[in-house]
Design a binder for these strands. Structure first.
Length: 816
DNA sequence: TTAGGGTTAG
C-alpha cells in the first residue's frame, strides 16, 4: 500500500471536498460524470468511480485513495473493491481486501463468494461459504445461495447446501429455487429438481424456464414439453428465455410443426429482436434441413453475435454444403467478427467435407496459435477427428498424444479413426490403452466405435465379452449399441444370436432393422431378409435409404432378381427414397450376377447419376463371373477414367481374358497395370483360434509357426492336385515363371490363415476366416478342395459376403 | 451496493 501511495499525486485529506473531486476527475479520466452530479449524488459518485476502473492499475490507485481518505473501515466501499478486483480477474487482491475488512456484513461475504464463482474457483467458493456458515457470526440471506449452488461441484455439495437453504427457510425464494432446479439438473438428478419445482408455492417465468432446460439437458425432451404444456395451462406467458430453451426441445423430439408454432409466437409477441431466440431458430431450422428458413432468420437479425455466425455456418456445414459454409465464414471475417472455438470446430468439419488437407493443417496452426488446444478439449477432439477423416491417421494420433486433457470422446474419436481407416488392430490397442486410464469411463460412443473393429477382424470372443459388460449396465438396450452387437454377431457368422438380440431390443427406428436385414443378406438368406422387411413395414417402421441398400444387396446375394426389382420400385413409389449410387450398384450387381449383363449395362447408361468406380467395378465383376470379355473391357475402360489406381480391377479383367483363352489380352492388361504403377491395398486375413485372433498378410514369413504353416500348405497342394485342382494363374498379375506364380497363390493371406487354423485347432472343428478384400478366385476354388480333404467347415467372411465351404462346395455359388 | 432460468459442439 505504501508504494502505491508514493505513486499517487499528493492529496491532503483535510482539505474541502471540492479538491477531492477534482483529484478523482484528473486521475480517473474515464469518469465522465459532471462535478455537480458527483457532489450531489453519493451513490452515483461511487458508481462512476468504480466503473471507471477498467484495469488492475486504476483499481489499485482507487484502493490507495480510499485508504488515504481513511475509508479503510467503510464496509460498503471495501466490499465493492472485493467485487471490483474479482471482475478484473485478480482473486488474490480480492481475497486480501476481504481479509482486511474487520466488520464483515452479509454483503461482504456474498461478494466474496460471488467473486470466487465468477472466476470459476468453485472449491474456494465452497470453502468460503462453509466459513460463513460455521463461524462468521453472520447470518446468510437469500442472496447467498444462488451463486453458492452454482459452485457446487458434486451432488453431495449440492445436498449439503440444500439442507442449509431449508434450515434458513429460503427454499421458496424464486431465485434460490431456480438455482436448486438448475443444480439438480446438472447432476442428472432431474426428478429431485422436479420435486423442488413442484413444491414451489409461487413460480415466476424463470422457475418454468429452469425446469424446461433441466429436462432438456438430461435428454428428456418429452418431459420438457410436458412442463411447457403445464405452463400454458396455468396461463404463464413464454418469454425469450423460454423460447430459446424450448426450440432445441422441438428439434430433439423431431417436431418441426411445434418449432414453427413457437416461431409464430415469437413473431406475434415481438420477440424476434432477441439474439438468443434468433440463434435458437437458426439451429432449429438447420436441424430440419430447412436452410432457407434458417438463412431468412439470419438475414433478418439486426444484431448478430458469434453464436449467430457459428449457427448459420454449422447449418450449411451439417447440411452438406461446405462451400456456402466457408463463404459465410469469410463473411464473418469481413464484418470483423472474430471466430471462437466452435467456429473452428465447424471449420474442421468443412475441410473434411472438402477433403482439403492443406487448409485443414492451416486450421490446426490457427488453433495452436490461439492456445485453444489447452483451453478446451472439444477443439482438440475436432482436430483428431478431422485428421482421421482426412485419412491422416498418424497426424490424428500425434494431436491426440499432445492433448493436455483427454476425455472419453477423445478416445472414442481415436478408436473410430483407426477403425474407419481399416486399422482394426490399432483401434483395439487404443481401446485397451483407454481401459488403463482409470478416469475414463467408456460410454455409448466407445462401444459404437470398438464393436465394429472387433467384428472387422472376427474377434468374436472379445465381442461377446463386451456384450457381457453391456448387459451389466443395460447399455445393450441402447439402439445404436445393440445394432453394433447385431452387426458383430452377423459378421461373425452367429445369425441366431443376432436374431435373438434383435427381438430383445426396441425396434421403432429403422436402425436395428437395417442391421439384421444386412446380416441375413451377407449370409445369403435373401428370402428371410425380405420377410423381415415386410414385418418392418407392418410394424409401421419407416424404411430409409440404408434399409434398401441392405435389402437390395440381400436380393442380389441370393439371386432374387424379381424380388429385387420389386423392392427397387417400391422404394421409389411407396417409400419416397430416391435411389443413389449405392442402390444402383446393388441393382447392377443383381442383374449382373444373375447373368443379365445387357440389362445391367443399360441400367448404368440410363442412371440419372454419374456412375463411379464402384458401379463399373461391379459390372466388371459380373463380366468376370459370366466370362464376358467384351463388356468387361468396356467396363474397365470406364473404370480407368474414374479410378486407375486400384489393382483389383486389372486382376479381374486379366482373369476374364485368361478364362476365355485370350492370353494376349491378359498379357496386355498386366503390362498396363505395371506401367501405371499399382497401388495395392495390402490384403490380410485373420483366423480365430481359441480366444486369440491371428492376422496374416500375404507372403508372411515372420510368424513363429511359419515353417509348419507352409509345410501344411505344401501337403495340401499335393492332395488337392490329385483331386483335380489346377491353380489359376490369371489371379497373379506379376510377370514371373509359373512355379513362382503358384508360390504366390499359395502364400495368399487367406491360405496362410486357413493353414494356421488347420494346425492349431482340433480335427473337424470349423475354421472362421476374415478377409479385408474380396476373396481371390483361386483361393476360393482351393478352399473348396481343402474343406473336402480335411473334412472341415471353413467359413470365410470377405469384404462382400459369407462363404461357407463344406464338403467341397461353397454356399455362395459365385465362383466356378 | 449482491441473485436465477436461454442459443452453437467434437
Amino acid at each position: 500500500m505504501l508504494s502505491l501511495r508514493k505513486s499517487l499525486p499528493p492529496f491532503k485529506p483535510n482539505s474541502t471536498v471540492f479538491p477531492l473531486q477534482r483529484w478523482i476527475h484528473q486521475n480517473f479520466s474515464s469518469a465522465t460524470g459532471s462535478f455537480q452530479q458527483i457532489s450531489h449524488d453519493r451513490d452515483y459518485k461511487n458508481n462512476v468511480v468504480f466503473h471507471s476502473c477498467t484495469d488492475i492499475g486504476t483499481a489499485k490507485q482507487l484502493h490507495a485513495l480510499l485508504t488515504v481518505l481513511g475509508k479503510a473501515q467503510n464496509v460498503v466501499l471495501f466490499t465493492q473493491l472485493v467485487t471490483l478486483y474479482a471482475t478484473l480477474g485478480d482473486l488474490s487482491l480480492s481475497r486480501n481486501t476481504f481479509e482486511h475488512i474487520q466488520r464483515k456484513n452479509i454483503f461482504t461475504w456474498n461478494s466474496m463468494v460471488a467473486a470466487y464463482v465468477r472466476c470459476g474457483r468453485y472449491r474456494e467458493a465452497m470453502y468460503c461459504v462453509s466459513e460463513l456458515l460455521s463461524n462468521s457470526g453472520v447470518r446468510p440471506d437469500f442472496y447467498t445461495f444462488a451463486p453458492v449452488l452454482k459452485a457446487c461441484v458434486s451432488v453431495v455439495d449440492g445436498e449439503k447446501m440444500h439442507c442449509w437453504v431449508l434450515k434458513m427457510g429460503f427454499e421458496h425464494d424464486v431465485y434460490v429455487a431456480a438455482s436448486l432446479i438448475h443444480l439438480y439438473s446438472r447432476f442428472s438428478a432431474v426428478d429431485v429438481a422436479y420435486k423442488v419445482f413442484d413444491d414451489m408455492p409461487v413460480r415466476d417465468v424463470g422457475s418454468w424456464n429452469a425446469m424446461i432446460s433441466g429436462f432438456l439437458q438430461n435428454g428428456k425432451a418429452a418431459r420438457a414439453l410436458g412442463v411447457l404444456g403445464r405452463m400454458k395451462v396455468e396461463g404463464v406467458k413464454m418469454d425469450t428465455v423460454t423460447v430459446a430453451s424450448v426450440l432445441p426441445v422441438c428439434a430433439q423430439v423431431n417436431d418441426v410443426v411445434c418449432g414453427m408454432l413457437v416461431h409464430l409466437y415469437v413473431i406475434k409477441h415481438g420477440l424476434e429482436s432477441d439474439v438468443f431466440v434468433c440463434n435458437a431458430l437458426i439451429n432449429l431450422y438447420s436441424k430440419f434441413g430447412r436452410l432457407q428458413d434458417a438463412q431468412r432468420v439470419f438475414d433478418g437479425m439486426k444484431v448478430r453475435d458469434v453464436v449467430s455466425w457459428n449457427s448459420i455456418i454449422a447449418a450449411y456445414e451439417q447440411n452438406d454444403d461446405p462451400v456456402t459454409a466457408l463463404s459465410l465464414f469469410k463473411g464473418m471475417q469481413f464484418v470483423g467478427m472474430g471466430p471462437d472455438l466452435l467456429t473452428v470446430v465447424s471449420l474442421t468439419s468443412i475441410f473434411v467435407q472438402l477433403s482439403d488437407r492443406r487448409i485443414g493443417r492451416a486450421v490446426h496452426g490457427f488453433i495452436i496459435r490461439r492456445g485453444w488446444l489447452e483451453e478446451d478439449v472439444v477443439t482438440g477432439n475436432a482436430l483428431v477427428n478431422m485428421y482421421a477423416k482426412l485419412g491422416l491417421i498418424d497426424c490424428a494420433r500425434a494431436v491426440f498424444e499432445q492433448l493436455p486433457i483427454r476425455d472419453v470422446i477423445s478416445w472414442n474419436t481415436l478408436i473410430t479413426g483407426y477403425a474407419q481407416n481399416g486399422l482394426a488392430s490399432e483401434a483395439i490397442d487404443a481401446f485397451k490403452m483407454m481401459g488403463e486410464c482409470r478416469t475414463i469411463i467408456p460410454n455409448q460412443g466407445t462401444w459404437v466405435s470398438i464393436l465394429p473393429a472387433y467384428s472387422h477382424i472376427g474377434a468374436f470372443q472379445q465381442g461377446m465379452k463386451i456384450h457381457g459388460r453391456l448387459i451389466k449396465n443395460c447399455l445393450y438396450l441402447d439402439v445404436f449399441v445393440a445394432t453394433c452387437l447385431i452387426n458383430m454377431y452377423g459378421e461373425c457368422g452367429r445369425l441366431e444370436d443376432a436374431m435373438s438380440l434383435f427381438y430383445e431390443i426396441p425396434r421403432e427406428t429403422s436402425v436395428p432393422w437395417n442391421a439384421i436385414i444386412s446380416s441375413l443378406g451377407i449370409h445369403g438368406h435373401g428370402e428371410e431378409a425380405l420377410q423381415l422387411f415386410k414385418d418392418m413395414l407392418t410394424e409401421g417402421v419407416k424404411a430409409d435409404h440404408i434399409t434398401f441398400v441392405s435389402l437390395l444387396s440381400a436380393c442380389s446375394h441370393s439371386g432374387l432378381v424379381d424380388e429385387g426389382q420389386w423392392c427397387f420400385n417400391l422404394m421409389q413409389k411407396d417409400c419416397g427414397v430416391k435411389p443413389n449410387l449405392k442402390h444402383y450398384g446393388c441393382m447392377v450387381d443383381l442383374f449382373g450376377r444373375a447373368g443379365y449383363l445387357e440389362k445391367a449395362y443399360n441400367l448404368v447408361n440410363n442412371m440419372p447419376v454419374q456412375a463411379d468406380a464402384s458401379i463399373w467395378g461391379t459390372l466388371l465383376a459380373a463380366c468376370r463371373i459370366h466370362g464376358n470379355a467384351e463388356l468387361g473391357t468396356l467396363a474397365l475402360d470406364r473404370l480407368l477414367e474414374v479410378d486407375s489406381e486400384n489393382v483389383g480391377y486389372y486382376v479381374l479383367l486379366s482373369n476374364i481374358y485368361a478364362n476365355v483363352g485370350k492370353w494376349e489380352g491378359a498379357v496386355k492388361v498386366r503390362s498396363l497395370a505395371r506401367d501405371r504403377g499399382l497401388r495395392k491395398t495390402p490384403g490380410w486375413s485373420s483366423v480365430v483360434v481359441g480366444s486369440v485372433v491371428e492376422v496374416f498378410y500375404a507372403g508372411n514369413q515372420t510368424h513363429p509357426q511359419c515353417a509348419e504353416i507352409y509345410k501344411e500348405l505344401r501337403v495340401l497342394n499335393v492332395k488337392m492336385k490329385t483331386l483335380g485342382y489346377v491353380p489359376d494363374y490369371s489371379f497373379v498379375l506379376q510377370d514371373v515363371e509359373e512355379d513362382e506364380k503358384e508360390q504366390i497363390l499359395t502364400s495368399h493371406s487367406e491360405r496362410l490363415a486357413i493353414a494356421f487354423g488347420l494346425i492349431s485347432t482340433p480335427p473337424k472343428s470349423p475354421i472362421r476366416i476374415f478377409k479385408n478384400l474380396r476373396v481371390c478366385g483361386d483361393c476360393h476354388n482351393a478352399t473348396k478342395y481343402i474343406s473336402k480333404i480335411t473334412e472341415r467347415d471353413i467359413i470365410v467372411r470377405d469384404s462382400n459376403r459369407f462363404h461357407h465351404f463344406k464338403d467341397g462346395c461353397c454356399s455362395c455359388g459365385d465362383y466356378w
